[in-house]
């Protein structure tokens, strides 16, 4: 298990135990966190699991992720990721993920 802290748009922090190998999107959904939709289930067909990795700890974007991010509902910054494309691993212990105001 790896602990990830999600910061929701209201500023609240939520510590969530994520299973290694899960995506950050799956971990958020499994923990019943509002703020991530994940409409396409992680197939990189939508941009409703947009998040910000402000510390830049999750590595480079995957192929096609840039294009999908273009349709995100909120501002896309260099820290923007699609959380379905971030695989949880032990090195991510303490990762902080900030969620945008909206996903649709």
């Amino acid at each position: 298990m790896t602990t990830i802290t999600f910061i929701t748009p209201d500023g609240a922090r939520h510590d969530i135990d994520a299973r290694d190998g899960q995506s950050v999107m799956q971990a958020a959904l499994a923990a019943d966190l509002d703020g991530i939709i994940g409409e396409c289930g992680g197939s990189m067909m939508c941009a409703t699991c947009h998040c910000y990795d402000d510390e830049g700890r999750t590595g480079p974007r995957s192929d096609g992720e840039d294009e999908m991010l273009e349709s995100a509902a909120c501002e896309v910054t260099p820290q923007s990721r699609l959380s379905c494309q971030i695989k949880v691993s032990a090195e991510m212990e303490g990762l902080v993920i900030r969620l945008p105001q909206s996903q649709l």
């Binding site: 990189m44 192929d63 096609g64 840039d66 294009e67 999908m68 273009e70 349709s71």
Partner: peptide
């Protein structure tokens, strides 16, 4: 995916 997204727009 880039062409697909352009098409959707």
């Amino acid at each position: 995916p880039g062409v697909h997204m352009a098409a959707r727009k």
